[in-house]
Design a protein around this nucleic acid. Structure first.
Lengths: 331, 331
DNA sequence: CTGAAAGCGCTTACAG
DNA sequence: CTGAAAGCGCTTACAG
């Protein structure tokens, strides 16, 4: 492996000068600078990151902790974070917390030991007090981690869009499958949906609205969907809004099993707009999070020179209306 | 940040001794050892990885390059690799190549600059000659990268299982949607399927078999599926085997659009057994790759003291028969 | 504008 | 069995 010393010898300068050229220190004369750059190219010199880190106390690395990378939403997020980091010449270290706070702490410490420039944490199940002591800047993304500032989609506003959508389509018997209320996302999405629906329906006595709490996964959507749709027809909802696409797809599956036509007899709306949402039959109406923008904000926040933000940041969402939602059937 | 020096002072020993205790060097007397360990605990000492790397020329890191982490199969693989690496106290650096050989090389070099213990590369589009010069051990997983040894599912044997499955169900008009023949995986899966089918059908004059080459994605399955199923009924296949689940699900979607019942009128089989395979309607018969085992082998191969293997390693696959395949309809 | 030198925190022969 | 010392490759005040 070539070192600065090799480059210095070849270019006939001191190692200090080589280092300055490499760090774009403008005090180096163009002539010397060119000689150094030539030597670097000739030798195929690659700086030793560990040595640099030892001096500067910081590696060109970003740490990323997600509950589960095989969750398509987190995978999408990870992809965008990696792309944004790569653009800024940073690598990404990935860790899964398995949604387990104990594993999560261990992973964060493991990541911190690598001296990253910053840490992006998608929190596991809500945790009130976390105490990581470090100077490494940390942001939480999508799901809050400890007291760190959050960058996420505007879940509340997004859910409000769904409420509006269904109400405008004429639905008055609506069920909401929520996420776990122990999670902030679960609470925000539910709140956004309920508040707006209440507001819209306040003068409407025909409104029937129920909420069932579940997990964010497929199985939960299937379970709850089955319960909701097994009631007598005149009581069962004409629309189901779910707190996640996975739940919505689970519900979609049950509807098909029960011979209920979507969207003729039942509208279903999800949240997250995962790839799959556009592939199921019928295509799922969903709320799209701008993961690219979230990723960009997270990476830039960590790598910017400016002090860490003191407020949470929210990214706008978009309702993608597709085949799974339609006007309520006339009876 | 605490250093070995702090620990040494506190324990009343030299830094060398601290280092030996930390590396489990057995020549340290239990008494000293305990004192050091106590000091480490009291101080909350965490070794500086960069310093260690600078000396040992190697960090407890594994690099992973995948074409696209948002591909569910690679996400699953990444998850298993991360879990296995974590067990062995290693972190994973993730990079996406976007299936672009140029990006791929850049990512690999970026990863190499971090001095990982090893690199796992899921190759992008096939590349004959790659020339990375490094002493860092490299394996390719799933899709071969350069001349590096491959660890992957036994694609050929897995595809042969599908051929047997369909033949035994009585299908004699079979279409195979292959992957790109520019890829090794595409070739192997196709070969495994064709060879076994030919072997089974050699005495059977009623056999009609066609192959259409596509990409591994949903859209390709939809396109090709539409073409295959638009023929006159007596010519169109009674079974479609696809080289990927995504293709198969695309075909499934088309079948539904065209009002063709699966599995009554048409059997569809995929490959990879992604999570989604078990969620579509009907559930997709598929070949399951043991990603956990593949991940384990890859990580262990890289971290083992033994020299790198000189042969490719294949992991057995399992056929998961589900609702999308059934006996051919009696006409 | 350039160079010589110190030092980041660790590991590892080498003495003793 | 333990310690003193060198050195990994780099950056950064400090002189000049």
């Amino acid at each position: 492996m070539k070192t600065v010393r090799d480059v210095a010898t070849k270019a006939g300068v001191s190692v200090g000068t080589v280092s300055k050229v490499l760090s774009n220190n403008p005090t180096v004369k163009p002539a010397l600078r060119d000689r150094v750059l030539t030597a670097v190219a000739d030798l195929g010199y690659k700086p030793n990151m560990a040595a640099r880190a030892l001096r500067t106390n910081r590696l060109n690395i970003l740490g990323l902790v997600v509950p589960d990378i095989s969750n398509p939403f987190f995978a999408q997020l990870a992809k965008n974070i990696e792309a944004e980091a790569a653009q800024q010449a940073h690598m990404v270290m990935l860790a899964n917390s398995d949604d387990d706070p104990v594993v999560e702490v261990r992973q964060i410490e493991g990541l911190l030991a690598q001296m990253p420039k910053g840490l992006i944490v998608v929190g596991s199940v809500d945790q009130s007090k976390v105490s990581i002591q470090t100077e490494v800047p940390i942001v939480s993304v999508d799901r809050r981690y400890g007291d760190y500032k959050l960058i996420s989609a505007d879940h509340e506003a997004g859910s409000a869009l769904v409420a509006e959508h269904l109400f405008q389509l004429g639905h008055r018997r609506i069920a909401y499958i929520s996420g776990p209320q122990s999670t902030e996302v679960g609470r925000l999405r539910r709140k956004g949906f309920c508040d707006r629906l209440q507001q819209l329906a306040q003068a409407d006595a025909t409104m029937k609205f129920q909420i069932v709490e579940g997990h964010f996964d497929y199985a939960s959507g299937e379970d709850i969907g089955r319960r909701l749709l097994s009631e007598r027809a005149e009581l069962s909802p004409t629309a189901i809004a779910a707190a996640s696409d996975q739940q919505a797809i689970g519900a979609l599956r049950v509807a098909r099993d029960l011979g209920i036509d979507v969207p003729t007899d039942l509208s279903i709306v999800g949240f997250d707009d995962i790839t799959l949402a556009n592939l199921v039959v019928p295509r799922l109406t969903s709320v799209s999070q701008n993961t690219a923008e979230i990723a960009r904000m997270a990476v830039r926040t960590l790598l910017s020179e400016k002090p860490m933000p003191t407020e949470d940041q929210f990214v706008e969402t978009i309702l993608c209306a597709r085949g799974s939602s339609g006007a309520v059937a006339i009876k």
